[in-house]
């Protein structure tokens, strides 16, 4: 053990009593000669003191009075705990259970098919029939908007012409006709 770099990482293990004598002896020699490493060791011992005091000062945690009885009862009832349940493999099925499962699955599939057929029939009844669809074909063709406006303009123009001619005829008739009750 020549350098502090070799010695320092071993100090905690030395204080924890985890070093063999072959490892501890050279470290002890180094500590005697090296003040900085001795200071590191003292620092570690001071730190350990916090844990020692904390450990002895811990008040025991109160355990519910019926805890042991409850746990033992649950254990014998087959409760494996949350994790045990997650990890437990599914139990193997017997032949009778498998046959029963197949019957249930077959009946379920048949029931699902019946429900599907009935629902399709109901849906069919609510759809519009063929005649309804043909009725749309009889509707007049939709005239595009610009054409419709032009047609309207033409109609309006014809009406205006007709109205103008009618006014002229009325005017001419009034000029040429005698008064009905002229005194």
């Amino acid at each position: 053990m020549n350098t502090c770099q070799d010695a320092r990482p071993m100090i905690p293990s030395y204080l924890d009593g985890e070093l063999s004598e072959a490892q501890a002896a050279p470290l002890r020699k180094h500590l005697l000669e090296c003040q900085p490493c001795r200071a590191t060791a003292q620092d570690q011992k001071n730190l350990a003191r916090w844990f020692q005091v904390a450990k002895t000062a811990e008040a025991p945690l109160p355990v519910p009075r019926d805890f042991a009885a409850r746990v033992a009862r649950r254990a014998f009832q087959g409760d494996r705990g949350a994790l045990g349940t997650e990890l437990a493999p599914a139990p193997a099925r017997t032949g009778a259970e498998s046959r029963h499962l197949r019957l249930v699955l077959t009946l379920t599939a048949a029931a699902a098919a019946v429900v599907l057929i009935v629902s399709m029939a109901i849906r069919q009844m609510t759809l519009p029939n063929g005649q309804d669809l043909r009725a749309d074909d009889k509707k007049e063709a939709v005239v595009p908007l610009p054409e419709a406006i032009q047609e309207l303009d033409r109609l309006n123009a014809r009406e205006r012409d007709a109205a103008g001619k009618l006014e002229e005829q009325k005017g001419a008739a009034q000029i040429g006709a005698p008064a009905e009750r002229r005194p």
Binding site: P9, Q42, D43, W50, V53, A54, A59
Partner: peptide, 27 residues
């Protein structure tokens, strides 16, 4: 990766301190 040793050392808990207080700080 081991950290570099700190230059600041820690003191052992004060003998005058209540043990419960030391435990509380530690936890």
């Amino acid at each position: 990766v081991l950290p570099e040793p700190s230059k600041v050392k820690v003191a052992a808990p004060d003998a005058q301190m209540e043990r419960a207080e030391i435990a509380k700080i530690t936890h």
